[in-house]
Design a protein around this nucleic acid. Structure first.
Lengths: 211, 211
DNA sequence: TTAGCGTCCGAACGTTCGGTTGCTATAGTG
DNA sequence: CACTATAGCAACCGAACGTTCGGACGCTAA
């Protein structure tokens, strides 16, 4: 990294700091991310790093934003062109599974990890994490409702219940991949999603449950 | 805590340290558990605390053991008298849900939290966490197989698949309780378990899924 | 009575933490 | 060209970290 930078180049520096931060925080956690390590790995001074954010907490929030962009690009963007409702719900589960399978973040799902790290300590970071989960849950709920309205899912389906179960599957996948490195995990997740989101042909008998 | 203790009383001291450690580590994590804080809260010196374990890592392993005893007493012991198979599987899901609902550990499931904290860093602590999950998963698998053999679950049931899904439900419950404090979460979990572990009367048609 | 063991303290160790301060060199502005 | 704003550095701060060490104390066995 060159000794001194223009105002325009400084944005690149900030961006580079965030890239590095996401990589570190993914495995070490947002709290395990330290200014000193960041500075060393980037060939900068600590104050040079901190100058872009002001405080570690502000850095953590910025890292959360950056991770959110990556998540969105990986999981949500690919499915915006898919037909809303059941099709999109299935598609987003698949991109999500793939995102975990490909280890987009080396430490697993960035937000699941952040949730576990911060759910017990109040503050802006916790609030930001919770807000992202709320927003994400909201999108899944919307697609589920559309699927029910379209008759693609049974009329009595409780969207909150279904989304709860889907989140559980993805958390189980994340956990199994990270802790056990079990290559069958993604298969389990896909199979469960397929079963749970089985098409419900309107005005037709439910087929005799292949499992 | 009295100024000095006999050799016999020292076991109480060690036990008190572990109790305190479990409480702290539940919310702050096993790494966030510090010798200094422990010493302050117990009215001891840092060396007095560390003398019982030798190192922080050894303390963490001891804390994991203590937490395991609590988990076992809360979740497993109550169901050992239940008929093996589907009945016990249902019962253990219920004690598990209850254990999360009652916040036996204030920071949620101790081992799910430990898994997320250590899955990315090799070492004895990580190995211990993984071992506990393996053991627990093994017990669930055993009960599932028994249930299938007894005909209480469909013959084609894949035990690994079912256990994967059950773990997901409990992780979703843990997450939802800790991050969102959603009072409906336990209801979602119970409903999903009930559906997933619905009785499968041998030699009878599957009833038209009340869903 | 005394030797010895185990418990625990107090102090210090080297390191790392987040953060601050004073400064220099540069880019952009008039 | 002079002036201001800022990116970044080097040095440093107080606090907290895990760990080590010598010694003081209480108990038990010889």
């Amino acid at each position: 990294m060159s000794p001194r930078r223009s105002a325009a180049e400084a944005r690149d520096t900030r961006s580079a700091i965030l890239d590095r931060s996401v990589a570190i925080a993914s495995t070490e956690g947002l709290e395990g991310l330290t200014i000193g390590r960041l500075a060393t790995e980037l060939g900068m001074s600590k104050s040079g790093v901190l100058g872009h954010f002001g405080s570690k907490e502000a850095l953590q929030l910025a890292v959360l934003d950056r991770a959110g962009e990556i998540f969105r690009a990986e999981v949500w963007t690919p499915v915006v062109s898919v037909t809303p409702g059941l099709a999109r719900l299935r598609a987003v589960c698949e991109t999500w599974i793939s995102y975990l399978e490909r280890a987009v973040f080396p430490g697993g799902c960035f937000f699941v990890a952040a949730a576990h790290e911060f759910d017990g300590r109040p503050g802006p970071v916790r609030d930001a994490v919770e807000g992202r989960f709320d927003a994400w849950r909201g999108r899944l709920l919307k697609e589920t409702r559309r699927a029910v309205e379209a008759g693609d899912l049974p009329a009595g389906t409780d969207p909150g219940q279904l989304v709860f179960e889907l989140m559980g599957l993805l958390m189980a996948l994340n956990h199994t991949l990270q802790l056990h490195h079990d290559p069958n995990a993604a298969g389990h997740a896909r199979r469960a999603v397929r079963t749970r989101l089985a098409a419900h042909p309107p005005a037709a008998r439910p087929q005799p449950a292949m499992k």
